[in-house]
Write a protein that binds this DNA or RNA. Sequence first.
DNA 1: TAGTGGTCTAGACCACATC
DNA 2: ATGTGGTCTAGACCACTAA
Lengths: 249, 249
Amino acid sequence: MREPEYRRVAADLRAKIESGELAPGQVIPSESDLMAQYGVGRNTVRAAVSELAAVGLVAGRQGKGRYVRQPDVLRVWGARVRDSGRESDAGLVDKWTEDVSAQGRIPGQVIEVHLLVATDEIAQRLQVSTGEPVVVRRRIQTVDGDPWRLSETYFPLDLVAGTRILEPVNIEEGVVRYLANLGQRVTLNKDELSARMPTVDEARILALAVGTPVLVQLRTAYDGAHAVRTSRVVTPGDRVRLIYEMKSS
Amino acid sequence: MREPEYRRVAADLRAKIESGELAPGQVIPSESDLMAQYGVGRNTVRAAVSELAAVGLVAGRQGKGRYVRQPDVLRVWGARVRDSGRESDAGLVDKWTEDVSAQGRIPGQVIEVHLLVATDEIAQRLQVSTGEPVVVRRRIQTVDGDPWRLSETYFPLDLVAGTRILEPVNIEEGVVRYLANLGQRVTLNKDELSARMPTVDEARILALAVGTPVLVQLRTAYDGAHAVRTSRVVTPGDRVRLIYEMKSS
DNA sequence: TAGTGGTCTAGACCACATC
DNA sequence: ATGTGGTCTAGACCACTAA
């Protein structure tokens, strides 16, 4: 039993998907068909198909069949060189709205704002003490009405008290430009990127198929050595392409 | 049957892991124990544990038990602001060696160089015709002897003919600086980042546990509007933190 | 009603690790 | 020899979808 049966079946199906014999969107053979075709029991077929589902190649719903998934990728910018050679600061809408609209899709977002105390992680990134009051703006950003991205931004309370940041409403020009217009200077942005499997909450909110990892972008903005805000953006790995454009020396 | 049994078991185990009751590195109860503890059949226990394995929370080996995984994270830089305010170009070693050494680990790499014709994807990114000759440097980069990152860089043949790029040897100062010293100018780097589950080859070479996504970094370097090289770097999502530091306007 | 996938069980045998 | 996980089967029943 060198190569398990279910792996042989999985590899064969995978090859058919990658070769295009089973095209994206197409329904794959039913479990009964696969049992007959490969001469194995139902659980073996299910183990094979589960493996493909676990890496995001197939999906399906009870009662209907399983089909080959086709990704729907949007591009969003983490940093962008404009004609001026520097980050844009004169736009009329926030970056999410701009990025999504530019690709002919309809952006949207649901915003909530909370006042809470800093956890260790947030305190460290904001350079404040654990337990200090911070403001968090949580956004569920949508494309064509579907949840697409989770975005949380944390501010030290004293830096945003009395501003519209505290109101759970859309800020048309975007938070970054809004604060810049109020006089906040940002000299450095530092992003930390990683990939992981989603938590159960993330999977639920983003309606993630099993086998879909998320891309996590932790961004902290600094004015000199002083942190002014930090954010965590969670996006499904198969639905975004995060772009960084950087001028070289 | 609102909530399946195996999900109840999985959620319970997950909670114990996240609360620390089952600590990283610790062996989780055996299948027999879990069967007795939750009063379910073996396959149900296995379905629950498989779910945790599929999201990278537990791993194990036949004959031994299953244990809670503990990530080993390294930081690597995608772009870094130096004291000079621009990308470093005077270092003595390549960036991988520098990043890994700085964290007290031992870097290494296995290099192979191939001459081949451009596929559609590579041709498009290098702005040449499909079928044009290109050179690819493939590197398996290691940390403390373990495969850690897969790096492929493609060059149009005419831009690197007669250089040491064609030799499958380490270039101490790194390819970027080597070419810069030969007079190649790079004015813009463009990175595209995404997360996905690994291919079977990637999982094998990087010794990935099931449930580990990869972070894919596609970088193209331009001299003006002209692409001079393009690379694909594949890293396990749980083993790296990719850092971008960007000066703001 | 028929066909699909979803859940669960009981049991068998194999492969690996440890004592 | 014993305990662990890995593979596989046969069979049962449930839930969802579509004709």
